[in-house]
């Protein structure tokens, strides 16, 4: 699948943003007054920046509000509702922390509800991908686990003391390893093939393509530029996304500096992981173009 920058930035930033917002809603980082304004402000900034980035992916973003109508069937629509609910439910929690120091909503029922919406938002984002049977690498429980683990790690780096945040980073590393290990070969195991796609028997191969230069389907769904670097990028994603931030959170004294220093490599690792999430995902339509097998081998 084509790794569109807008969608990569969207899932990374809104993942960290809603992870941090959820942690603040849960009262895991007790903040009051100006500190609360800065902390909640950052969480809102990250989450909203991600959502805005997602609209750059649209052909007609001016109609984006219509995406709220089909929550009964569409995970994309549900994600819209969940994100608005999370942002709205977190507002009183944030305002109380900033301006009514005596009134603790974070960690109590209003905060818990807001945090639940944050988790729901991440879950809906991941289900946009996990629901697609056409992309076997995504159509698996590891996809929501991966997205939730990354949101938890990002939130923990910003909100939680060193050792806990380090553990969260390692969990996201484990989720990555799991997704890599279980995802490799699922496309081949899933049993689709040029034979099944065309119904023309086992000995079928493309003879002449239907068009002479790539079309939307090929550019969007049969992407394999740079897959040869997949191994290195996996190591980068694991090292920067999980290993280095865990180490930094353990050795540096807890505080703003540790969080900032750990967040930078974590975000870089998350970007690498999300790029791979798209670039390594194979779509069954590739079987019509005879490119799926090449792509799976990483030779094309």
């Amino acid at each position: 699948m084509h790794p569109a920058p807008s969608v990569i930035i969207f899932t990374v930033l809104s993942g960290v943003g809603f992870g941090f917002l959820g942690a603040l809603d849960l009262g895991l980082m007790p903040v009051q007054g100006g500190a609360a304004l800065v902390a909640f402000g950052l969480a809102y900034l990250l989450a909203v920046a991600g959502l805005v980035a997602s609209t750059f992916h649209l052909g007609n973003p001016q109609r984006a509000l219509r995406a709220f109508t089909q929550w009964r069937t569409s995970w994309l629509s549900r994600e819209g509702w969940a994100s608005v609910a999370a942002l709205a439910a977190s507002a009183p929690v944030a305002l109380a922390a900033a301006f009514r120091p005596g009134m603790m909503l974070a960690g109590h029922l209003p905060g818990l509800i807001a945090a639940a919406f944050c988790v729901l938002t991440i879950l809906c984002t991941s289900m946009i991908y996990a629901q697609l049977r056409t992309v076997p690498r995504w159509h698996h429980w590891t996809t929501p686990v991966l997205f939730l683990a990354f949101a938890a790690a990002g939130g923990a780096i910003l909100a939680l003391p060193g050792p806990v945040a380090a553990a969260a980073c390692l969990v996201s590393g484990g989720a990555m390893l799991l997704a890599f290990a279980l995802g490799d070969g699922r496309f081949a195991r899933q049993g689709q093939s040029p034979a099944a796609a065309t119904g023309l028997g086992p000995r079928v191969r493309p003879f002449a393509p239907p068009h002479t230069s790539p079309n939307y389907v090929m550019r969007e769904m049969i992407h394999h530029v740079g897959r040869k670097h997949a191994r290195r990028l996996r190591l980068i994603a694991l090292g920067l996304g999980a290993g280095l931030p865990a180490l930094l959170m353990l050795v540096l004294p807890a505080g703003l500096l540790a969080s900032a220093l750990a967040l930078i490599p974590h975000l870089a690792g998350a970007l690498a992981q999300r790029w791979l999430f798209f670039a390594e995902a194979e779509h069954v339509v590739g079987h019509y173009y005879g490119r799926a097998a090449d792509a799976a081998r990483g030779t094309a």
Binding site: H57, L58, N60, A67, L76, I128, L132, Y216, V285
Partner: peptide, 11 residues
């Protein structure tokens, strides 16, 4: 809105 998700869902 041109999000392209339907094209992804089509085998």
């Amino acid at each position: 809105i041109g999000c392209g998700l339907c094209a992804w869902a089509c085998p």
